[in-house]
Amino acid sequence: MTRTQSWIVAVSALTIATLLTAILAGWFYLGPTLAARYLAYDFDLIAASGTIGDSFGPLNALFAAFGFLAVMVTLIIQGFSIRNQQKEIGRAQADLHRQRFESSFFQLLDLMRQVRAEIVYTTTTKTKNGRLVGGRALKGAYEDAKHLLIRETPIDRKLSKTEIAKLYKGHIHIRSEDGLGPYFRLIYTILRRIHQDSVLTEEEKVQYGNLLRGQLGSPEVALLVLNGLTKDSRDLSEYLNRFRIPRYLPDSSVRRSVKEFYTPTAFEPRGD
């Protein structure tokens, strides 16, 4: 029971007790006087006793009123108690949801690292064997993307969103579609789950977004931002804006090419 409810109970009980005491004291004080007054008259004793009995009518009404008041106070207190119980249940359910979300979140991060380790990419630059795996595959794809954008960007204008997406899909993503595809879809799933969760606070969502960003290196951020421009990525770009992933793009041809296709705030520090 909260302090407010305790005050309500105390005040109500004190009020009822005070009124009942006053009424009973008055009745006991005036009772003999009334009895002597009515019985002193020269008429039938039964009739006089009936008159005295009738005087209890108002007292009965008062007791009935106080009884009703007591019932109302009890119902109000029970209402407070039920609401508090519901709040406690709601908080317990929210805490349980947070625990489950945290557990599934870190499981997805583990799965993300496993998928990343299995990515294979055949680079077009001069590297040993030209076949890269894991983090080196992502770095190789990023280097190819930088050179590709530099080579294909016209002198007199910037590439459009559609042109960048087509270059990325036709020259980078296609070289590791079986690896980059599942990897980016997994990142998309994590971001979407954080964004759509109805229990997490905004601060908690930002913290989870930061944890995910901490798992991404600069090459991954660059490829992820390029992938966000393609039609197949659905609303990935919205989540990248939401969690300010483009902010971690290194200063390169990729950043210069895609900057106008993401919101300005996506490149700004959040202060978190």
Rank of each mutant, 00 (worst) to 15 (best):
R3L: 12
T4D: 11
I8Y: 12
A13G: 14
A13Q: 12
I16T: 12
A17T: 12
T18L: 15
L19F: 08
L20H: 08
L24A: 13
G26P: 00
F28K: 14
Y29E: 05
Y29N: 09
L30F: 09
P32K: 02
T33Q: 09
T33Y: 07
L34E: 05
A35G: 04
R37I: 13
L39K: 06
D42C: 02
I46C: 00
I46W: 00
I46P: 00
G50L: 11
T51E: 15
T51W: 15
F56R: 14
G57F: 13
G57I: 13
P58V: 08
L59V: 10
L59A: 10
L59N: 04
N60Q: 13
A61L: 12
L62T: 15
F63Q: 12
F66Q: 15
G67H: 04
M72G: 13
L75C: 08
I76F: 15
G79F: 11
I82P: 04
N84Q: 15
Q86P: 00
I89A: 11
R91S: 11
A94W: 03
D95Y: 09
H97P: 01
H97R: 07
R98D: 03
Q99Y: 09
R100M: 15
F106R: 08
Q107K: 10
L108R: 13
L111T: 08
R113M: 14
Q114N: 09
V115I: 11
A117Q: 13
I119E: 01
Y121P: 08
T122E: 15
T123Y: 02
K126G: 12
N129A: 13
G135N: 09
A137K: 02
D144F: 00
D144W: 00
L149P: 04
E152G: 05
I155K: 06
R157C: 01
K158S: 12
K161H: 06
K161L: 11
A165E: 02
L167D: 04
Y168W: 03
H171M: 13
I172A: 06
I174V: 14
E177Q: 11
D178P: 03
G179P: 02
P182H: 04
P182Q: 07
P182N: 04
L186I: 06
L186M: 12
L191R: 01
R192G: 01
R193A: 08
I194L: 07
S198C: 06
V199M: 00
L200W: 00
E203Y: 13
E204N: 01
N210D: 11
L212H: 03
L212A: 04
R213E: 14
P219D: 03
P219M: 05
E220P: 01
V221G: 01
L223I: 02
T230F: 00
L236M: 07
E238W: 01
E238L: 05
L240H: 03
L240E: 02
N241A: 09
F243A: 02
F243Q: 03
F243E: 07
R244E: 04
I245Y: 04
P246R: 10
L249S: 03
S257E: 05
V258W: 07
V258C: 05
T263W: 05
R270L: 09
